[in-house]
Design a protein around this nucleic acid. Structure first.
Lengths: 220, 220
DNA sequence: ACCTGAACACCGTTCAAGT
DNA sequence: ACCTGAACACCGTTCAAGT
């Protein structure tokens, strides 16, 4: 009879950091930011809350790891054949789409300083700016500007998702809200509200990226 | 004897929405985002937690009102004599400084959709873009881009403040962190980390605004 | 009308005890 | 080494009872 490995058989339902994080992401996606509690997560994993703490330090680590898992795809985007601008656009869109699918990750992205996914995004943006021959002295602030814009959108999308039932027509809600604004105090907002009807969040997001890229191009 | 007004004498320590919000701001400034609890606030106001609920619906309303109070100054900035670009710069700097002094407000700004201060900021930016003769079709996305950039910075500053003792040298901490990064995976971040030493957050923030403004100018 | 403070229904986290 | 689940120290919010 062949010798069996000494390592204990891995039961299907054995706990592990990976399984815990995956379950947390699932819970967050289904129940929203408020739905992730150690009790609910433990119930989902058919164990007690204490068991989770053997694999994960605390709730913040859970959220950080979940956000990282969700952004891994966007961060791995292959941009080898693209122009630097297109590479930045597709990185940014990858992040946008990931947040769109998992709005709670947008909150976490803007909440935790040096969230690993943010650092990796900054790095990837910076590499493209080098390829663009952005002057060395302007590389840092240019990468920061792009990053901050992306994080700002991520945060706003997360806030909007938090306040509305999934599947709500955001534009319609925003448009209705702006119709109630005082015309004297909010002339611009009201004048622009009509554009919400047939506006595409994703295109709008890209238009902002392009504005920053145009500014960067102007640096020579 | 002159008739006294029927309105009861306003005791110095009578509760009111204004006093509650002011106390909340004070508590947030001193103890940070985690320090605002209804019990602590009630103790500060020498009353019970229930009393606060007579004047304020819930914690979120308290945070929204506090953020609004803190940003009122920045929003009221007089920009009458400025060029549109300078007006946008000074509005943005006003927000930056307010968040710098009250980092918890940066979190709230990015957390609540249609936080009133955000709406007013969007409006004021938009009015300047009109003055700049930005094409009508581009006004909305241009104002959004500026707003999102500002909110992104606000969020990051709040996150950084949350993670550090007040008064910590942020640049030094970031620089130390980046020195620990793998050189092969983070060449850009490491190359740029040196600039952190003598970089000014405020200038860096403005550089980003200028990048977007340059992009907007390029729209014709 | 406004305030009081105990009570309710939760949290995140810890830890003795088990296997 | 890993899991269990009761217990601790909090929360936000409600509400009967007071003035």
């Amino acid at each position: 009879m062949a010798t069996r490995t000494r390592r204990p058989e891995r039961r299907e339902d054995a706990l592990s950091r990976t399984r815990i994080v995956a379950a947390a992401v699932e819970l967050l996606d289904v129940t929203g930011e408020g739905g992730l509690t150690f009790r609910a997560l433990a119930a989902h994993l058919r164990t007690g809350p204490g068991a989770i703490y053997w694999h994960v330090a605390n709730k913040d680590e859970l959220l950080t790891a979940g956000t990282d898992a969700v952004l891994a795809g966007a961060m791995a985007t292959d941009v080898a054949g693209d122009t630097p601008q297109d590479a930045i656009r597709s990185l940014a869109l990858g992040v946008f789409d990931a947040i769109d699918a998992h709005p709670w990750a947008g909150t976490q992205l803007t909440r935790t300083p040096s969230q690993p996914s943010v650092l990796r995004l900054f790095e990837r943006i910076g590499q493209q700016l080098r390829a663009l021959d952005v002057p060395a002295a302007a590389q840092f602030s240019s990468a920061s500007a792009l990053l901050n814009y992306i994080l700002g959108v991520a945060g706003q999308n997360a806030a909007l998702a938090r306040s509305q039932e999934p599947g709500t027509d955001r534009a319609a809600v925003l448009e209705a809200a702006s119709a109630n604004l005082d015309a004297d105090e909010f002339p611009f907002t009201r004048s622009v509200a009509g554009q919400l009807r047939d506006h595409d969040d994703r295109e709008q997001f890209l238009a902002g990226i392009d504005l920053v890229l145009a500014g960067i191009a102007g640096l020579q």
